[in-house]
Design a protein around this nucleic acid. Structure first.
Lengths: 158, 158
DNA sequence: AGATTTCGGTCGAGATCGTCCAGCATTTTA
DNA sequence: TAAAATGCTGGACGATCTCGACCGAAATCT
């Protein structure tokens, strides 16, 4: 489905999405029309979901991030989900198995804002909030190469 | 710190990081050298952390994602953190307050891989894993405009 | 106040880049 | 085996980016 050249291109673009076609071409050893065509098809197939920019939340005044686990009260699941989606300070939300129905990331400018936002869902769901103290790993894609983790584990043991 | 033009530029780039300077310029009403200079400074100041590409994990064979809460055993915190960082399938990890020390996102190709990876930290930490069933909100930046959430909340009530 | 520096902007020219097209080699299909 | 399809290259041309010269407003200095 993806060949080495595609993976190579993606790897470069993960580091800098504004790399010119010409540079991409010379780094992977193709001509720029070929690279252009490959990118077009990667987008078309949905492999590339978007070219985007990663912004430092601090620069926007968001001094605090929290992980919020959300357990809607009986019958409130849809309302709660809709509410979460509509609050732009939620920067990420996953619906998961287990007791906690949703796990979400919340950006806030202050502790006061945290309280204000959580109040808005407090009557429809139970929440547990954990303040983020540090980010050992910031968003990164999974390995692009085909090596399975177990293979590598073996190598590490051996 | 950030003016309207900067925010405007960021908004456009969040949607498409490969927008040409010329297009950016015409959309915000500046010349392209000015836009170029603004982007340079936004990068320099660290407001723009990176231009990157969002890849569909499915296209890379990762059919499963999980949120893993990790509680290192006494004295194992640093070893565990290092281990997490070194496992590339962890696509995100936050160090948080509360009982769970780390909350991480794990990309795996199969349930078997999930087990294999968690085994590697099983003797150094307690983990709780929640499989992601859906993603109501995929990674998005917090609001770029200065409007505080509470202001909006008031408007909604009023 | 008036002069000066700084800051951010425009414009235009030359350099660089992207896109289109024709042509070619390889692989797949009939 | 012939035909069609695929994916690549190179070159030409139009679009884009970058650089330097210049400009005006606002802040700073005397």
């Amino acid at each position: 489905m993806l060949d080495d050249l595609d993976r190579n291109l993606l790897e470069i673009l993960v580091k800098d999405a504004r790399t010119s076609l010409k540079d991409l071409a010379s780094q992977v050893g193709l001509s720029s029309p070929s690279v252009s065509e490959r990118l077009r098809r990667l987008e078309e197939r949905g492999v590339i979901r978007a070219f985007t920019v990663e912004i430092d939340p601090l620069a926007l005044g968001y001094t605090l991030q929290a992980i919020v686990r959300i357990r809607p009260l009986p019958g409130k699941l849809h309302i709660v989900q809709k509410l979460i989606e509509e609050i732009p300070e939620f920067g990420e939300c996953d619906k998961v198995t287990g007791d906690d129905c949703f796990v979400a990331r919340l950006f806030v400018r202050s502790i006061g804002d945290l309280d204000g936002i959580l109040d808005r869902i407090a009557d429809k769901a139970e929440t547990s909030t954990a303040i983020i103290k540090a980010q050992p790993i910031r968003r990164r894609p999974p390995p692009l190469d085909a090596t399975a983790s177990r293979d590598r584990a073996k190598v590490l043991q051996g």
